[in-house]
Design a protein around this nucleic acid. Sequence first.
RNA 1: CCAGGGGUGGCAGAGUGGUCAAUUGCACCUGGCUGUAAACCAGGCGCCCUUCGUGGCUGCGCAGGUUCGAAUCCUGCCCCCUGGA
Length: 395
Amino acid sequence: MFNFKIIKRDKKTKARLGLLKTPHGVIYTPNLAIVGTKGAIRGISFEKAKKFGAEIFMINTFHFFHNERYKIVEKFGGLHKFLNIDYPLMTDSGGFQVFSLGFGMEHGVGKIANIFPSENKENLRNGSKNLVKIYDEGVKFISPYDGKKLFLTPELSIKIQKILGADIIFSFDECTSALSGYDYTKLALKRTHSWAVRCLKAFGNNKKQIMFGIVQGGEYEDLRKESAKFINSLPFFGFGIGGSLGKSKKDIIKVLNWTLPYLDENKPRHLLGIGEVDDILNSVELGIDLFDCVIPTRWARHGTVFTFKGRLNLKSSRYLKDRKPIDVNCHCEVCKKYTRAYICHLFREKEIYAVILMVEHNIFWILNLFKEIRKAIKMNKFLEFKRKIMNKINK
RNA sequence: CCAGGGGUGGCAGAGUGGUCAAUUGCACCUGGCUGUAAACCAGGCGCCCUUCGUGGCUGCGCAGGUUCGAAUCCUGCCCCCUGGA
Protein backbone atom coordinates (compact mmCIF):
# COMPACT_ATOMS: atom_id res chain seq x y z
CA MET A 1 0.00 0.00 0.00
CA PHE A 2 2.88 2.33 0.76
CA ASN A 3 6.00 2.72 -1.24
CA PHE A 4 8.77 5.25 -1.66
CA LYS A 5 11.00 5.15 -4.68
CA ILE A 6 13.68 7.52 -5.84
CA ILE A 7 13.16 8.03 -9.53
CA LYS A 8 16.05 10.30 -10.29
CA ARG A 9 19.04 11.79 -8.59
CA ASP A 10 20.45 15.13 -9.60
CA LYS A 11 24.01 14.73 -10.88
CA LYS A 12 25.53 17.78 -9.26
CA THR A 13 23.67 17.93 -5.96
CA LYS A 14 21.97 15.57 -3.54
CA ALA A 15 18.56 16.65 -4.79
CA ARG A 16 16.34 13.76 -5.75
CA LEU A 17 13.07 13.10 -7.43
CA GLY A 18 10.89 10.63 -5.58
CA LEU A 19 7.56 8.93 -5.73
CA LEU A 20 5.69 8.24 -2.53
CA LYS A 21 2.67 5.98 -2.90
CA THR A 22 -0.12 6.01 -0.36
CA PRO A 23 -3.59 4.48 -0.37
CA HIS A 24 -5.04 7.90 -1.10
CA GLY A 25 -2.75 8.79 -3.94
CA VAL A 26 0.74 9.47 -5.07
CA ILE A 27 3.09 12.25 -4.02
CA TYR A 28 5.90 13.32 -6.28
CA THR A 29 8.79 14.70 -4.31
CA PRO A 30 10.21 17.17 -3.58
CA ASN A 31 6.87 18.49 -2.51
CA LEU A 32 5.13 20.64 0.05
CA ALA A 33 2.38 19.49 2.36
CA ILE A 34 -0.17 22.27 2.57
CA VAL A 35 -1.04 22.93 6.17
CA GLY A 36 -4.62 22.59 7.32
CA THR A 37 -4.04 22.34 11.05
CA LYS A 38 -7.63 22.18 12.19
CA GLY A 39 -9.00 20.40 9.17
CA ALA A 40 -9.09 23.29 6.75
CA ILE A 41 -6.56 25.31 4.83
CA ARG A 42 -7.06 28.88 5.91
CA GLY A 43 -8.47 30.67 2.91
CA ILE A 44 -8.72 27.96 0.23
CA SER A 45 -10.41 24.62 -0.27
CA PHE A 46 -8.52 21.34 -0.33
CA GLU A 47 -9.96 20.79 -3.80
CA LYS A 48 -8.56 24.02 -5.18
CA ALA A 49 -5.17 23.45 -3.59
CA LYS A 50 -5.22 19.94 -5.09
CA LYS A 51 -5.99 21.42 -8.46
CA PHE A 52 -2.95 23.68 -8.10
CA GLY A 53 -0.78 20.65 -7.54
CA ALA A 54 -0.95 19.97 -3.81
CA GLU A 55 -0.56 16.25 -3.27
CA ILE A 56 -0.60 15.95 0.50
CA PHE A 57 -1.97 17.96 3.41
CA MET A 58 -0.87 18.30 7.01
CA ILE A 59 -3.29 18.29 9.91
CA ASN A 60 -2.46 18.55 13.59
CA THR A 61 -3.12 16.07 16.36
CA PHE A 62 -2.99 18.66 19.12
CA HIS A 63 -5.86 20.63 17.67
CA PHE A 64 -8.07 17.55 17.57
CA PHE A 65 -6.87 16.47 21.01
CA HIS A 66 -7.28 19.52 23.24
CA ASN A 67 -11.02 19.65 22.64
CA GLU A 68 -11.44 15.87 22.27
CA ARG A 69 -12.66 16.48 18.74
CA TYR A 70 -10.81 13.33 17.64
CA LYS A 71 -13.67 11.44 19.26
CA ILE A 72 -16.07 13.06 16.83
CA VAL A 73 -13.74 12.31 13.95
CA GLU A 74 -13.65 8.71 15.12
CA LYS A 75 -17.42 8.46 14.78
CA PHE A 76 -17.11 9.61 11.19
CA GLY A 77 -14.43 7.03 10.52
CA GLY A 78 -11.37 9.25 10.32
CA LEU A 79 -10.25 12.53 8.83
CA HIS A 80 -10.71 11.49 5.22
CA LYS A 81 -14.37 10.88 5.80
CA PHE A 82 -14.87 13.75 8.22
CA LEU A 83 -13.34 16.24 5.78
CA ASN A 84 -14.77 14.31 2.84
CA ILE A 85 -11.54 14.31 0.87
CA ASP A 86 -9.61 11.35 -0.44
CA TYR A 87 -6.21 12.95 -0.74
CA PRO A 88 -3.10 11.83 1.07
CA LEU A 89 -2.93 13.32 4.55
CA MET A 90 -0.32 13.55 7.24
CA THR A 91 -0.77 14.45 10.89
CA ASP A 92 1.74 16.14 13.09
CA SER A 93 2.02 14.50 16.48
CA GLY A 94 1.54 17.51 18.73
CA GLY A 95 5.28 17.69 19.29
CA PHE A 96 5.46 21.15 17.82
CA GLN A 97 3.04 22.48 20.44
CA VAL A 98 5.43 21.24 23.11
CA PHE A 99 7.65 23.95 21.71
CA SER A 100 5.29 26.62 20.46
CA LEU A 101 3.26 26.71 23.67
CA GLY A 102 6.30 26.04 25.84
CA PHE A 103 9.77 27.42 25.32
CA GLY A 104 8.72 29.08 22.07
CA MET A 105 6.28 31.20 24.00
CA GLU A 106 8.55 31.66 26.99
CA HIS A 107 11.56 32.63 24.92
CA GLY A 108 9.53 34.60 22.43
CA VAL A 109 11.10 32.77 19.49
CA GLY A 110 10.16 30.58 16.56
CA LYS A 111 11.79 27.53 15.03
CA ILE A 112 14.66 29.66 13.85
CA ALA A 113 15.42 31.94 16.71
CA ASN A 114 16.69 34.90 14.73
CA ILE A 115 18.40 36.43 17.68
CA PHE A 116 21.73 38.06 17.37
CA PRO A 117 23.31 40.55 19.75
CA SER A 118 23.33 43.10 16.95
CA GLU A 119 19.67 42.70 16.09
CA ASN A 120 16.93 44.40 17.95
CA LYS A 121 14.44 42.24 19.72
CA GLU A 122 11.48 44.51 19.32
CA ASN A 123 9.78 42.36 16.78
CA LEU A 124 9.82 39.25 18.88
CA ARG A 125 6.57 38.07 20.32
CA ASN A 126 6.50 38.74 23.97
CA GLY A 127 7.54 35.74 25.92
CA SER A 128 7.39 34.81 29.58
CA LYS A 129 4.30 32.59 29.56
CA ASN A 130 4.82 28.86 29.35
CA LEU A 131 1.85 26.57 29.14
CA VAL A 132 3.87 23.39 29.03
CA LYS A 133 5.54 21.10 31.51
CA ILE A 134 7.57 18.26 30.08
CA TYR A 135 8.10 14.95 31.84
CA ASP A 136 9.59 11.68 30.64
CA GLU A 137 6.12 10.18 30.74
CA GLY A 138 4.56 12.90 28.58
CA VAL A 139 3.66 16.57 28.42
CA LYS A 140 1.30 18.60 30.55
CA PHE A 141 -0.35 21.42 28.62
CA ILE A 142 -2.54 24.23 29.71
CA SER A 143 -4.71 24.71 26.66
CA PRO A 144 -4.16 28.15 25.11
CA TYR A 145 -7.76 28.01 23.93
CA ASP A 146 -9.61 27.47 27.18
CA GLY A 147 -7.08 26.87 29.94
CA LYS A 148 -7.96 23.22 30.23
CA LYS A 149 -5.32 20.91 31.67
CA LEU A 150 -4.13 18.31 29.20
CA PHE A 151 -1.67 15.45 29.26
CA LEU A 152 -0.30 14.12 26.03
CA THR A 153 1.96 11.08 25.86
CA PRO A 154 3.60 9.33 22.92
CA GLU A 155 1.07 6.54 23.26
CA LEU A 156 -1.89 8.91 23.28
CA SER A 157 -0.55 10.88 20.32
CA ILE A 158 -0.26 7.68 18.30
CA LYS A 159 -3.66 6.49 19.46
CA ILE A 160 -5.22 9.75 18.27
CA GLN A 161 -3.25 9.73 15.04
CA LYS A 162 -4.52 6.22 14.36
CA ILE A 163 -8.05 7.41 14.92
CA LEU A 164 -7.52 10.43 12.69
CA GLY A 165 -6.27 7.98 10.12
CA ALA A 166 -3.87 10.13 8.08
CA ASP A 167 -1.68 8.21 5.68
CA ILE A 168 1.50 9.49 7.23
CA ILE A 169 1.86 10.15 10.93
CA PHE A 170 4.74 11.53 12.96
CA SER A 171 6.32 10.28 16.14
CA PHE A 172 5.70 12.42 19.21
CA ASP A 173 8.80 14.48 19.89
CA GLU A 174 10.02 17.41 21.88
CA CYS A 175 10.84 20.28 19.60
CA THR A 176 13.50 22.30 21.41
CA SER A 177 14.25 26.00 21.45
CA ALA A 178 17.39 27.56 20.07
CA LEU A 179 17.70 29.33 23.40
CA SER A 180 17.89 26.12 25.37
CA GLY A 181 21.51 25.22 25.82
CA TYR A 182 23.43 22.09 25.02
CA ASP A 183 22.70 20.24 28.24
CA TYR A 184 18.97 20.74 28.04
CA THR A 185 18.86 19.90 24.33
CA LYS A 186 20.72 16.69 25.06
CA LEU A 187 18.30 15.78 27.80
CA ALA A 188 15.34 16.54 25.55
CA LEU A 189 16.92 14.48 22.80
CA LYS A 190 17.18 11.42 25.04
CA ARG A 191 13.52 11.86 25.87
CA THR A 192 12.53 12.25 22.23
CA HIS A 193 14.43 9.05 21.43
CA SER A 194 12.67 7.07 24.12
CA TRP A 195 9.37 8.53 22.93
CA ALA A 196 10.22 7.39 19.39
CA VAL A 197 10.56 3.82 20.64
CA ARG A 198 7.30 4.12 22.55
CA CYS A 199 5.58 5.54 19.47
CA LEU A 200 6.68 2.60 17.37
CA LYS A 201 5.41 0.21 20.00
CA ALA A 202 2.06 1.97 20.13
CA PHE A 203 1.96 2.07 16.35
CA GLY A 204 2.30 -1.71 16.27
CA ASN A 205 1.69 -3.63 13.12
CA ASN A 206 -0.26 -0.92 11.36
CA LYS A 207 -0.82 -1.49 7.68
CA LYS A 208 -3.03 1.51 7.04
CA GLN A 209 -0.51 4.16 7.95
CA ILE A 210 3.19 4.85 7.89
CA MET A 211 5.15 6.72 10.52
CA PHE A 212 8.03 9.14 10.21
CA GLY A 213 10.46 9.32 13.13
CA ILE A 214 11.68 12.76 14.06
CA VAL A 215 15.32 13.70 14.34
CA GLN A 216 16.12 16.37 16.92
CA GLY A 217 19.32 17.70 18.48
CA GLY A 218 18.97 21.42 18.08
CA GLU A 219 21.92 23.21 16.59
CA TYR A 220 24.50 20.82 18.03
CA GLU A 221 26.51 18.69 15.66
CA ASP A 222 27.07 15.69 17.88
CA LEU A 223 23.44 15.61 19.02
CA ARG A 224 22.12 15.87 15.47
CA LYS A 225 24.38 13.04 14.34
CA GLU A 226 23.50 10.92 17.34
CA SER A 227 19.82 11.55 16.72
CA ALA A 228 20.02 10.78 13.02
CA LYS A 229 21.82 7.51 13.73
CA PHE A 230 19.37 6.53 16.42
CA ILE A 231 16.19 7.36 14.53
CA ASN A 232 17.66 5.70 11.46
CA SER A 233 18.16 2.51 13.43
CA LEU A 234 14.45 2.27 14.17
CA PRO A 235 11.89 0.83 11.73
CA PHE A 236 10.32 4.12 10.68
CA PHE A 237 9.11 4.44 7.11
CA GLY A 238 10.64 7.87 6.78
CA PHE A 239 12.09 10.76 8.69
CA GLY A 240 11.06 14.12 9.93
CA ILE A 241 13.77 16.62 10.68
CA GLY A 242 12.51 18.88 13.35
CA GLY A 243 13.27 21.11 16.18
CA SER A 244 15.23 24.20 16.55
CA LEU A 245 17.10 24.75 13.35
CA GLY A 246 19.47 27.22 14.88
CA LYS A 247 19.73 30.96 15.00
CA SER A 248 19.76 31.79 11.32
CA LYS A 249 19.03 30.44 7.87
CA LYS A 250 22.61 29.25 7.52
CA ASP A 251 22.12 27.00 10.51
CA ILE A 252 19.42 25.06 8.65
CA ILE A 253 22.03 24.06 6.10
CA LYS A 254 24.47 23.08 8.83
CA VAL A 255 21.87 20.95 10.60
CA LEU A 256 20.92 19.19 7.36
CA ASN A 257 24.53 18.53 6.51
CA TRP A 258 25.04 16.91 9.89
CA THR A 259 21.83 14.93 9.76
CA LEU A 260 21.10 13.68 6.27
CA PRO A 261 24.23 11.56 5.73
CA TYR A 262 23.12 9.31 8.58
CA LEU A 263 19.62 8.70 7.26
CA ASP A 264 18.81 5.79 4.97
CA GLU A 265 18.78 7.49 1.61
CA ASN A 266 16.04 5.25 0.31
CA LYS A 267 13.60 6.61 2.85
CA PRO A 268 11.75 9.90 2.52
CA ARG A 269 12.97 12.92 4.50
CA HIS A 270 10.54 15.57 5.59
CA LEU A 271 11.88 18.90 6.85
CA LEU A 272 9.29 19.96 9.35
CA GLY A 273 7.87 23.44 9.20
CA ILE A 274 10.23 24.97 6.69
CA GLY A 275 8.94 26.81 3.70
CA GLU A 276 10.64 30.08 2.77
CA VAL A 277 11.81 29.95 -0.81
CA ASP A 278 15.55 30.07 -0.20
CA ASP A 279 15.32 27.52 2.59
CA ILE A 280 13.34 25.17 0.37
CA LEU A 281 15.92 25.42 -2.39
CA ASN A 282 18.85 24.92 -0.04
CA SER A 283 17.16 21.95 1.59
CA VAL A 284 16.18 20.24 -1.65
CA GLU A 285 19.77 20.58 -2.75
CA LEU A 286 20.85 18.61 0.30
CA GLY A 287 18.30 15.85 -0.23
CA ILE A 288 15.06 16.87 1.46
CA ASP A 289 11.95 15.35 -0.13
CA LEU A 290 9.05 16.86 1.75
CA PHE A 291 8.16 20.07 3.48
CA ASP A 292 5.19 21.58 5.20
CA CYS A 293 4.81 25.20 6.08
CA VAL A 294 2.24 27.72 7.23
CA ILE A 295 3.94 30.58 5.45
CA PRO A 296 1.92 30.59 2.22
CA THR A 297 -1.33 30.96 4.13
CA ARG A 298 -0.09 33.00 7.09
CA TRP A 299 1.78 35.52 4.99
CA ALA A 300 -1.32 35.89 2.84
CA ARG A 301 -3.46 36.59 5.88
CA HIS A 302 -0.89 39.14 6.99
CA GLY A 303 -0.74 40.82 3.59
CA THR A 304 2.44 39.35 2.12
CA VAL A 305 2.68 37.53 -1.19
CA PHE A 306 5.33 35.52 -3.01
CA THR A 307 6.80 36.83 -6.22
CA PHE A 308 9.79 35.86 -8.30
CA LYS A 309 11.38 39.08 -7.12
CA GLY A 310 10.97 38.20 -3.48
CA ARG A 311 8.18 38.80 -1.05
CA LEU A 312 5.82 41.70 -1.54
CA ASN A 313 4.09 43.41 1.34
CA LEU A 314 0.81 44.21 -0.36
CA LYS A 315 -0.69 45.99 2.63
CA SER A 316 1.38 49.06 2.01
CA SER A 317 -0.57 51.93 0.48
CA ARG A 318 2.06 52.36 -2.20
CA TYR A 319 0.36 49.52 -4.10
CA LEU A 320 -2.98 51.32 -4.24
CA LYS A 321 -2.05 52.74 -7.63
CA ASP A 322 -0.20 49.69 -8.91
CA ARG A 323 -1.89 48.22 -11.98
CA LYS A 324 0.45 45.23 -12.22
CA PRO A 325 -0.62 41.76 -11.08
CA ILE A 326 0.96 40.40 -7.87
CA ASP A 327 3.62 38.68 -9.93
CA VAL A 328 3.94 39.35 -13.65
CA ASN A 329 5.45 35.91 -14.12
CA CYS A 330 2.75 33.99 -12.27
CA HIS A 331 0.04 32.15 -14.17
CA CYS A 332 -2.50 31.84 -11.40
CA GLU A 333 -6.04 33.10 -11.88
CA VAL A 334 -5.48 35.92 -9.39
CA CYS A 335 -2.51 37.24 -11.32
CA LYS A 336 -4.37 36.88 -14.60
CA LYS A 337 -7.30 38.87 -13.38
CA TYR A 338 -6.56 41.27 -10.53
CA THR A 339 -4.25 44.22 -9.94
CA ARG A 340 -2.15 44.85 -6.88
CA ALA A 341 -4.17 48.01 -6.42
CA TYR A 342 -7.44 46.12 -6.07
CA ILE A 343 -6.07 43.48 -3.71
CA CYS A 344 -4.26 46.13 -1.65
CA HIS A 345 -7.48 48.10 -1.43
CA LEU A 346 -9.43 45.02 -0.31
CA PHE A 347 -6.81 44.13 2.27
CA ARG A 348 -6.72 47.63 3.73
CA GLU A 349 -10.49 47.64 3.93
CA LYS A 350 -10.32 44.31 5.77
CA GLU A 351 -12.31 42.52 3.12
CA ILE A 352 -11.88 38.79 3.60
CA TYR A 353 -11.71 38.38 -0.16
CA ALA A 354 -8.27 40.00 -0.16
CA VAL A 355 -6.98 37.15 1.98
CA ILE A 356 -8.70 34.59 -0.20
CA LEU A 357 -7.04 36.02 -3.30
CA MET A 358 -3.65 36.20 -1.65
CA VAL A 359 -3.89 32.67 -0.27
CA GLU A 360 -4.86 31.41 -3.71
CA HIS A 361 -1.88 33.14 -5.25
CA ASN A 362 0.59 32.03 -2.59
CA ILE A 363 -0.51 28.39 -2.70
CA PHE A 364 -0.42 28.35 -6.48
CA TRP A 365 2.92 30.10 -6.52
CA ILE A 366 4.69 27.86 -4.03
CA LEU A 367 3.32 24.67 -5.57
CA ASN A 368 4.48 25.92 -8.93
CA LEU A 369 7.92 26.42 -7.45
CA PHE A 370 7.93 22.75 -6.47
CA LYS A 371 6.84 21.74 -9.96
CA GLU A 372 9.75 23.67 -11.37
CA ILE A 373 12.10 22.18 -8.81
CA ARG A 374 11.05 18.69 -9.90
CA LYS A 375 11.42 19.61 -13.52
CA ALA A 376 14.87 21.01 -12.88
CA ILE A 377 16.00 17.86 -11.09
CA LYS A 378 14.62 15.76 -13.90
CA MET A 379 16.69 17.71 -16.38
CA ASN A 380 19.78 17.76 -14.16
CA LYS A 381 19.52 21.49 -13.92
CA PHE A 382 18.65 21.94 -10.28
CA LEU A 383 21.69 24.01 -9.40
CA GLU A 384 21.14 26.42 -12.29
CA PHE A 385 17.49 26.70 -11.35
CA LYS A 386 18.31 27.36 -7.73
CA ARG A 387 20.83 30.06 -8.59
CA LYS A 388 18.41 31.72 -10.94
CA ILE A 389 15.68 31.91 -8.31
CA MET A 390 18.04 32.92 -5.50
CA ASN A 391 19.43 35.78 -7.56
CA LYS A 392 15.98 37.06 -8.26
CA ILE A 393 14.54 36.85 -4.78
CA ASN A 394 17.56 38.26 -2.99
CA LYS A 395 16.62 41.82 -3.90
C1' C B 1 -34.19 85.65 23.24
C1' C B 2 -33.99 82.50 27.92
C1' A B 3 -32.02 77.96 30.46
C1' G B 4 -28.54 74.00 30.37
C1' G B 5 -24.44 71.26 28.00
C1' G B 6 -20.15 71.52 24.98
C1' G B 7 -15.76 73.09 21.60
C1' U B 8 -8.75 68.70 22.87
C1' G B 9 -3.94 66.25 17.86
C1' G B 10 -6.83 62.97 10.76
C1' C B 11 -11.49 60.95 13.50
C1' A B 12 -13.75 59.36 18.13
C1' G B 13 -12.85 60.45 23.01
C1' A B 14 -9.89 60.96 28.19
C1' G B 15 -7.67 64.75 31.04
C1' U B 16 -10.13 69.86 34.44
C1' G B 17 -3.67 74.28 37.90
C1' G B 18 2.62 71.48 37.56
C1' U B 19 4.30 64.46 36.91
C1' C B 20 0.88 66.94 29.53
C1' A B 21 3.54 66.96 23.32
C1' A B 22 -1.25 65.46 26.13
C1' U B 23 -4.52 58.27 28.34
C1' U B 24 -7.08 55.09 24.98
C1' G B 25 -9.34 53.28 20.40
C1' C B 26 -9.59 53.88 15.12
C1' A B 27 -6.93 55.53 10.92
C1' C B 28 -2.00 56.09 9.04
C1' C B 29 3.52 54.54 8.49
C1' U B 30 7.53 50.72 9.08
C1' G B 31 8.96 46.07 10.27
C1' G B 32 8.33 40.86 11.57
C1' C B 33 6.09 36.05 10.73
C1' U B 34 9.24 29.00 8.74
C1' G B 35 5.73 20.93 12.02
C1' U B 36 -0.73 27.78 12.87
C1' A B 37 -1.93 30.59 20.83
C1' A B 38 -1.42 34.29 14.45
C1' A B 39 -7.18 37.82 9.13
C1' C B 40 -1.66 38.31 14.04
C1' C B 41 2.43 40.71 16.60
C1' A B 42 6.09 44.72 17.47
C1' G B 43 7.53 49.72 16.88
C1' G B 44 6.35 54.63 15.09
C1' C B 45 2.75 58.48 14.59
C1' G B 46 2.79 67.90 16.00
C1' C B 47 7.09 70.57 13.70
C1' C B 48 12.56 71.34 13.81
C1' C B 49 17.77 69.84 14.47
C1' U B 50 24.39 66.62 9.63
C1' U B 51 24.66 67.16 17.41
C1' C B 52 18.22 62.62 18.47
C1' G B 53 18.77 65.16 23.75
C1' U B 54 16.49 65.67 31.39
C1' G B 55 17.26 69.54 23.07
C1' G B 56 14.38 73.75 20.58
C1' C B 57 9.64 75.52 18.78
C1' U B 58 4.43 75.49 18.39
C1' G B 59 -0.07 73.39 20.66
C1' C B 60 -6.19 71.71 23.57
C1' G B 61 -12.37 77.28 19.40
C1' C B 62 -10.41 82.86 19.18
C1' A B 63 -8.42 87.14 22.00
C1' G B 64 -6.88 88.85 26.52
C1' G B 65 -5.92 88.08 31.86
C1' U B 66 -4.55 85.63 36.82
C1' U B 67 -0.25 82.57 38.30
C1' C B 68 6.55 80.92 39.31
C1' G B 69 3.50 77.60 36.06
C1' A B 70 -2.81 77.15 32.25
C1' A B 71 -5.79 72.13 27.92
C1' U B 72 -7.24 72.90 33.04
C1' C B 73 -8.98 79.22 36.66
C1' C B 74 -11.12 84.40 35.13
C1' U B 75 -13.13 88.02 31.27
C1' G B 76 -14.89 88.99 26.40
C1' C B 77 -15.98 87.08 21.66
C1' C B 78 -17.21 83.11 17.99
C1' C B 79 -19.37 78.40 17.03
C1' C B 80 -22.18 73.68 18.07
C1' C B 81 -25.98 70.65 20.72
C1' U B 82 -30.52 70.05 23.87
C1' G B 83 -34.93 72.09 26.07
C1' G B 84 -38.27 76.50 26.52
C1' A B 85 -40.89 81.03 24.70
